[in-house]
């Protein structure tokens, strides 16, 4: 006879999510069967949207992000007359999760967009985007749309962004006497990426366990999230820690190690998808 206080697993997960999670962690495994330092299966598909100059679709587990690059021309700013623009924006709409409401971007979308923009200052060659100093420069709009939000959208966005930039092609453009910019028919010009930088996100549970790539059911239970961005020379470009909660130095070092391993995995993925094109 089952005791009246025994619940089914589903009910227990709903009613006591933290307890439910702890029971798995005590056995050194996570509810979806992954090890603590294991990232979810990542799939990358580049160049799938013909209306965009460059595009990529990334799936990390169930989290799906589409990135589309469109290029237009504008006058450069007064304080940077020989530089182009790069405008990344992330759309976390009500389509991808019940947590988001229709309307202008919420907090998470604004934070992710700003982080992508900050990171882009390290690897985008803005001077190469200039067509004619003080007169015309390329504006590269990178819009990311999340189709399914199952946690860790920042990693997926950065990977999609980089893959889309790699396969983006702009036409050769010249400014004429009349001030009108004209472009050729062939799309041959690539966007220079100084060095590839990728992000890896980890979560800390109760200050003790370090979990890689938290999904949407794990994220609300963690006390802090740490994102580490590394490049191909194993240099650190950014470390972000959110959600107040403590993180020891050893844990931080472990994050950087795991991020470097993750980088090698992901850059192999980037290379193979570029080769497929």
């Amino acid at each position: 006879m089952t005791s009246p206080y025994a619940f089914s697993a589903e009910t227990f997960k709903r009613v006591q999510p933290s307890e439910y999670y702890r029971k798995f962690l005590e056995q050194d495994v996570r509810p979806d069967g992954r090890a603590f330092s294991q990232f979810r299966k990542t799939i990358l598909n580049a160049g799938c949207i013909s209306t965009a100059n460059g595009s990529a679709v990334v799936r990390i587990g169930d989290t799906t992000v589409v990135c589309g690059i469109k290029a237009e021309v504008a006058e450069p700013t007064l304080d940077q007359p020989a530089a182009g623009y790069f405008v990344p924006n992330v759309e976390l709409g009500p389509l991808c999760s019940a947590k988001f409401r229709p309307g202008p971007p919420g907090d998470l979308a604004q934070v992710v967009s700003e982080r992508l923009r900050k990171l882009s200052e390290e690897y985008i060659a803005f001077e190469e985007l200039c067509i004619e100093p003080e007169q015309a420069a390329w504006v590269v709009y990178a819009d990311l749309v999340c189709l399914n939000h199952d946690g860790n959208v920042l990693d997926a966005c950065q990977l999609a962004l980089l893959a889309a930039l790699k396969n983006a092609r702009l036409p050769e453009a010249q400014i004429g006497e009349d001030g009108i910019v004209r472009a050729g028919e062939a799309f041959t010009r690539a966007i220079t990426i100084k060095r590839p930088i990728l992000a890896a996100t980890f979560g800390l549970y109760e200050g003790r366990s370090l979990l890689a790539d938290p999904n949407a059911s794990e994220e609300p239970l963690l006390d802090s999230l740490v994102t580490v961005c590394v490049d191909d020379a194993e240099h650190l470009h950014a470390v972000w820690k959110s959600n107040g909660g403590r993180c020891s130095l050893e844990q931080l070092q472990r994050c950087v190690e795991l991020a470097r391993i993750r980088f090698t995995e992901l850059s192999a993925l980037l290379e193979s998808s570029a080769a497929d094109q």
């Binding site: 971007p105 004209r182 472009a183």
Partner: peptide, 18 residues
């Protein structure tokens, strides 16, 4: 739009060279 990363105020698509 203060909630999004801003580009230049206006931008145009370049004309075809033909």
């Amino acid at each position: 739009d203060r909630r999004r990363v801003q580009g230049p105020e206006t931008s145009v698509v370049p004309f075809p060279l033909l």
